[in-house]
């Protein structure tokens, strides 16, 4: 069971300026996610799911309100501080994998540890790639891997920094059913074994149902879906 609070959001509002005027995407969102919890954020396209994920992970700066990560004020910090906090607490898995095309699979997985100056980056990466079943693909480049394999590398990379929170943006969106299932299994296994908090944006109802909680994003408002 979840013990302490991993993420706390109060009155989070986000407005963007476009040609047609100001557009408020998030309208006063309040929520809490406990440590080790798995949470799915669902909703129709354009409802603001990815924007919320971006703000939770500190990739963007909100217009008003507050985001706390393990009780640390996150949203108002400089890019420098936010990057440090991300490096310490956060891992990512993206819909389009976002591996660095010029790096081999193992080098992609080594990156987070290398950024922290970890000398055992390579060893750890090998272990992780083995866990995702790619120990035979270490020196392959992303364009030599299938979509499912690329996403497995991305998951290995996400767990390489031992994140406390893993954000996933449509992690199975670009995969076929079989690969999708494999990825979901991997994500939840690692979530369980490492006690990672999992926050996932998804269209996939099956996937959403596997999470402890489902939050529904609609017209900039967030509501809890009762299970």
């Amino acid at each position: 069971m979840a013990s302490s609070t991993a993420i706390k959001v109060s009155n989070l509002t986000h407005t963007v300026t476009s040609n047609t005027g100001d557009l408020t995407i998030l309208k006063g969102i309040n929520m809490e996610i406990k440590e080790s919890e798995s949470v799915a954020i669902v909703g129709s396209s354009g409802s603001g799911k990815s924007t919320l994920l971006g703000l939770l992970a500190g990739l963007d700066v909100n217009t008003s309100g507050e985001v706390l990560l393990y009780d640390q004020e996150f949203s108002g910090q400089s890019e420098e501080k936010r990057a440090l906090i991300r490096g310490q607490y956060v891992g990512f898995v993206f819909q389009s994998f976002h591996l660095l095309p010029s790096l081999q699979a193992i080098e992609n997985v080594m990156l987070p540890a290398e950024l922290k100056g970890d000398k055992d980056a390579r060893k750890k990466a090998e272990v992780l790639l083995d866990k995702v079943g790619l120990s035979h693909r270490l020196t392959h480049y992303p364009n030599q891997l299938s979509g499912g394999e690329q996403q497995r590398v991305a998951i290995a990379r996400a767990f390489a920094s031992n994140p406390k929170i893993l954000f996933a943006d449509e992690p199975t969106g670009n995969l076929d059913e079989e690969n999708g299932k494999l990825i979901i299994k991997l994500l939840f296994d690692l979530n369980q074994s490492q006690g990672t908090t999992l926050v996932m944006v998804t269209h996939d109802n099956e996937l959403a149902k596997m999470c402890d909680r489902q939050l529904v994003m609609s017209a900039g408002q967030l509501t809890e879906k009762s299970l």
């Binding site: 990739l59 420098e80 990057a83 991300r86 490096g87 956060v90 660095l100």
Partner: peptide, 16 residues
């Protein structure tokens, strides 16, 4: 461009 954005999500600071 994308490489830098990805490195940033992985915790690389602008200073680094």
């Amino acid at each position: 461009l994308m490489q830098v954005a990805i490195l940033k999500t992985l915790g690389a600071t602008p200073k680094l």
